[in-house]
Amino acid sequence: MHDPVTEDDLTAYIDGQLDLPRQAVVEQWLAGHPAVAARVMADKSLSDLLRVGCVAPEVPPTRLVATDQLAGRLQRQLLLRLVRRGVQRGLAACLLIAVGWGLNAMSPGFTAPADAALPVPVFADEAAEAFHTALRERVAERGLADDAVEEVAHLASADPDIPVPLPSPQGRGWQLLGARLAPWDEGDAAQVFWRDKHGDLLVIFAVEDPGSRPPRPLDLVPQVVGIDGRPVVYWRQGAYAYAVTGTVSRGKLVRFANGAASATNREAMGPAGAGP
């Protein structure tokens, strides 16, 4: 009778990857080959020791934060993908609750005015990321020209002849710092920087998103979420989507978003609409 046990069998036995019948065959064979059995048992012991010895390294807290933020972004992307794919109705329902719960837990101060349980849209996530990048690169302090706004509005549009409508903050004390193009999943976004009289920033992230699903009434109402510890207010208007964030207070962001959203809605409904 030929020897039925191979080296691959022994490897799989060490790694616990044999089914029970095959495992029994190997053990029976090992009983008759004590030298090989000793080596196999030694290898199993080494695997056990590796599990004890291989621990994740200690990472400085500053680096942990960066990794954690990336992980959070990826998680939101995948959650969104789940929703988009509509894998299961029940799963989607759980997801909405989980996202809403998670966001509320993460940012206790950031409660959405209407519907915190909505999944964060990609453009809002990208707005937060673009803002962090701008802060890191000190974009507001250098490299912005206030006369670039109109050009950026045209460049961010799918049709360069029709610029992306860009709302402006109302009231005194606002200074337009400038605008630039920022990448997002579907192309280029217009990122416009304003500074209030206290020196705090309000940054508008405006995109044309014609490929998105048909807007729902709720989309027209600004929603507030906390992304990476900062409030982001977002809403849609037709083929356009907006997200505002910055170093100004959450209240200022919400007031600006409510004003801008209602102004763009009035404009969309008739010629009597005023500017934002």
């Binding site: 390294p57 200690e58 998680q75």
Partner: peptide, 23 residues
């Protein structure tokens, strides 16, 4: 099951450590 990236970070770090041999 909902994706949970953070729960996989320790495994990613362990694997990255063995690949790079540097924390």
């Amino acid at each position: 099951m909902l994706p949970d990236i953070r729960s996989h970070l320790p495994a990613l770090r362990r694997y990255a450590m063995v690949l790079t041999r540097d924390a």
